[in-house]
Amino acid sequence: MRDFLSKMAFILVIAILWELIRLTGGYPKLLFPGVSSIINALWIERWDIMSKTMFSLKIIGMGLVVAIGLAMFGTFISMSGKFFAEIVTDLMAIMHPLPGIAILPVAILWFGIGIKAILFVIVFSAVWPLINHFYTGFRSIPVNQLEVGRNLGLTGWELALKVMLPASFPHILSGLRTGWARAWQASVAAELVFGAAGGQGGLGWYLYKKRFMMETPGVFAGMLIIVLIGIAVEYLIFAVVEKRTVKKWKTIIN
């Protein structure tokens, strides 16, 4: 509760500061809309924003599931032999620095304009950091822990589940965090650059439309929602998972 209150106070301070700067600076409404007009835009457009948010979350969810699947596959084959490990590492070195949005023109050529292209960009953006973290996680499992596990008679799946997973989970978790962030960025960026979809579009498309209609409060409202979702996912999902897993297991310091 105290934590929640301090966060609300923090947001309030930012809002007050925003208004103070706006009023004392005499900036035009077009460039620096008031907090009230942003809240107003949020309220008037609530249904539209909600459906756009749902759409964004849906394709990000789909993209992440595919990316996690691919990353797990990539990690397992690189764990299974030096040959594959080198291929995956090389691929990662080439692909990881490439921003997902740079893939967009190719994605459009291959998949046409629409969800498939955006999905491709999301998967591409998320899969490399995921593999990177998963692989690092599995490789950094202390050998003595593995051996203790083996001495206790654990083999195969049991060893993987009871020793390897807990030992590498901090890395897996930070991989998921990065993957989620990259997927979120990719979906908004792809729609913002391309505005690819018509009736079906997410928050990036919402920002795009608001920008072209010069509705600055609407643009800020969209940005606010993106930030809020980021915060919500961090505190409601990742923080909870962290508390129940790595903090409980004491694999990381509290």
Binding site: I113, G195, G199
Partner: peptide, 8 residues
């Protein structure tokens, strides 16, 4: 036709 529009 709003839902048919694509910005290109």
């Amino acid at each position: 036709l709003d839902d048919n529009l694509v910005a290109l």
